[in-house]
Design a protein around this nucleic acid. Structure first.
Length: 444
RNA sequence: GCUGUGGUGGUGUAGAGGUUAGCACGAGGGAUUGUGGUUCCCUCAGCCCGGGUUCAAUUCCCGGCCACGGCCCCA
C-alpha cells in the first residue's frame, strides 16, 4: 500500500471538526480586531524566499522547477507571500491593511512532535502603520486568540530589538559590513540571541571594546522580569553616553497599551534579548511559549519587521505581525485537556444541533427523498440510510453515527400518511404527519 | 546534523527459532423480515521491506523504510 509522505498527516473527521472549530475561533477573534482573511498560492517563485531569508533557506525548501523551467517552491511561511500580494495588488487600498491568513506551509526537515514537513500556520499582519500602538494591537490579538481558544499556562516574552541595537550602536558597533562579511552589530545580535556570553565577550574584545565599557550591555542582557524591568533597563541606558532611549520608550508605550487591550497574560516577561533570529526585525518582538510542549514549546511569534522594501515600498515599513503554529496550539490544548480531564478540547468542536437519521424501511426510498430535502433546506442535518438495512441494523446505524433523532418510514407509515420519529436520546417515539411541519413539531 | 526506542489484522495488543500466530475493539452478516446504545453466533483482516545466519526466520544479525522521543537548528 502507498503511504502518505514523511512528515505529512491525514485529518480524520473527528480531528477535522476540532481543527475547523479552532480556525473559526481564530477568524472570529481576528474579525473582531478588524482583520480580513486573504489567501495566497501554496507555491511561489523561489526568489521570494531567498530574497527574504537568504540563499541558505533553499536547503529547507520543497523547491522544484516547473515544465517551463521556472524556479518555484512550496511556501515555507506566509509573511513574504502576503507582502508580495500587497505590493502586487493592494497598493491603493486604504492603509493600514489588517490581513489574516491560514494555510499549509512546507519545510524539508526532520519532523518531530509539533514539527511537521507540512504544517499549518495562522497569521496576521498590519501593514502601513508602524509604531507602538500597532505593536500593541498585534500582541493583543495574539493574546486574545489564545485566551478564547482556551490555552492556559502560556508565557509571553516581549522585547524590542531597537534597545540592544541602541546599546551596541553606542558601543561603536557598525550596522555596515566591512570587507563583505557580517556586520559587527549583526554578529553581536546573533551571539546575544544564542545566549553565547563567552562568544560575545570574545567578539567585543576583537572589536577593541573594553569589558568595563561593555558592562551595560551585559547588564541589559541579564535583565528579566515583569513590567518593572523596563525601568531597570532605563536606568542602565541612561548610564551610557549618547544612547538612544526611543526604543525603550516605545516598548513601554506598547506594554501599557497592551495591558488595556488584552487580559493580562498568565506570565508576561520582558526579555530584551529576544532577537528572533533574523535581522529583518526592527522593533518590538515577541514569542509565546507553552511549557507543556517540551522542546518545541513556542506556539506563536512575531514582531515589527521591514520587508516591504524588497518590493520597492519602503514607505510601508516597518510592518508588524505574527505567525501562530496551528498544530502546536492544538497539541498544547490536547495536552492540557488530558491533564484536566476535559472532554472538549477546542471550544465548540462538538456539534450539539439535532441530527436526523432518515430510514426508509422496506419501501422505495423515493418516498422519503422530498421530505429529506425539505428538512435539509430547513437547516437540519439529515443522514439518509443508503444500504437498505433491516430495521434493527438501521437503528444501530443511526445510533453509531451519532444521530439525535431517527425517522422511520415503513409500509405502515406510508399507508397511514405518517412518519415515526424517535428521539434516540430519550427513546421516546411518536408518529407525525408525513410533512415537513409534522416532523419539525417532534424535533426539538 | 547528532542521538535513543520501537514496528504482529483497520485500531490496540499476546506470543514463540519449527504454532491452525492468540485476544479485544472494529467492520459486515445472522439470531430477530417494524426498533438502537445489552447478549449470542458466524465472517472479514496481520507478523514493514531487503539481505545475512540457520535444515528452518515473522522471531536472531545488518541495512533500508516508517513511527515515537531527546539535542542542534528553526523565516
Amino acid at each position: 500500500m502507498v503511504a502518505k509522505p514523511r512528515g505529512t498527516r491525514d485529518f480524520l473527521p473527528k480531528e477535522m471538526a476540532r481543527r475547523l472549530a479552532f480556525e473559526r475561533i481564530l477568524d472570529d477573534v481576528g474579525g473582531r480586531h478588524g482583520f480580513f482573511r486573504v489567501q495566497t498560492p501554496i507555491f511561489e517563485t523561489l526568489e521570494l524566499f531567498t530574497a527574504k531569508s537568504g540563499e541558505g533557506v533553499v536547503g529547507q525548501l520543497y523547491s522544484f522547477e516547473d515544465k517551463g523551467g521556472r524556479h518555484l517552491t512550496l511556501r515555507p511561511e506566509m509573511t513574504a507571500p502576503v507582502m508580495r500580494m500587497v505590493a502586487e495588488e493592494l497598493r491603493n487600498e486604504t492603509k493600514p491593511l489588517r490581513l489574516s491568513y491560514f494555510g499549509q506551509c512546507y519545510r524539508y526537515e526532520e519532523f518531530k512532535k509539533g514539527r511537521y514537513r507540512e504544517f499549518f500556520q495562522y497569521g496576521i499582519e498590519i501593514i502601513g502603520a508602524p509604531g507602538p500602538l500597532t505593536e500593541a494591537e498585534i500582541v493583543a490579538v495574539a493574546v486574545n486568540m489564545l485566551s478564547e481558544a482556551g490555552v492556559k499556562n502560556w508565557e509571553l516574552r516581549i522585547g524590542h530589538v531597537g534597545i540592544l541595537k541602541a546599546v551596541l550602536g553606542a558601543l561603536g558597533l557598525s550596522t555596515k559590513a566591512s570587507d563583505g562579511g557580517e556586520a559587527p552589530m549583526v554578529t553581536a545580535m546573533r551571539l546575544i540571541d544564542k545566549r553565547d556570553t563567552a562568544g560575545l565577550e570574545a567578539f567585543l574584545t576583537s572589536q577593541k571594546i573594553e569589558r568595563a565599557t561593555a558592562q551595560p550591555l551585559f547588564d541589559i542582557q541579564g535583565l528579566s522580569g515583569g513590567i518593572e524591568t523596563l525601568e531597570q533597563a532605563n536606568t542602565i541606558l541612561l548610564s551610557i553616553d549618547g544612547v538612544d532611549t526611543t526604543p525603550l520608550d516605545e516598548l513601554r508605550t506598547t506594554c501599557n497599551a497592551l495591558s488595556a487591550l488584552a487580559q493580562t497574560p498568565t506570565t508576561m516577561s520582558i526579555d530584551l534579548t529576544v532577537a528572533r533570529g533574523l535581522d529583518y526585525y526592527t522593533g518590538m518582538v515577541f514569542e509565546i511559549h507553552v511549557p507543556e510542549l517540551g522542546g518545541e514549546s513556542q506556539v506563536l511569534g512575531g514582531g515589527s519587521y521591514k520587508l516591504m522594501h524588497l518590493f520597492g515600498l519602503d514607505d510601508l515599513d516597518p510592518c508588524c505581525g505574527f505567525g501562530l503554529g496551528f498544530d502546536r496550539v492544538l497539541l498544547a490544548l490536547e495536552a492540557q485537556a488530558e491533564h484536566e480531564g476535559r472532554a472538549e478540547i477546542v471550544p465548540g468542536e462538538t456539534n450539539s444541533e439535532p441530527s436526523i437519521a432518515m430510514i426508509p424501511f422496506n419501501i422505495d426510498p423515493q418516498h422519503v427523498l422530498a421530505l429529506t430535502a425539505g428538512l435539509r433546506k430547513a437547516g437540519y442535518r439529515v443522514d439518509l440510510e443508503l444500504r437498505g438495512r433491516k430495521i434493527g441494523k438501521a437503528m444501530s446505524w443511526a445510533n453509531s453515527i451519532g444521530a439525535t433523532h431517527c425517522i422511520v418510514v415503513g409500509p405502515q407509515d406510508l399507508e397511514q400518511g405518517q412518519v415515526t420519529v424517535k428521539n434516540l436520546k430519550t427513546g421516546e417515539q411518536n408518529v407525525a404527519e408525513f410533512t415537513l411541519d409534522g416532523v419539525r413539531s417532534l424535533i426539538v
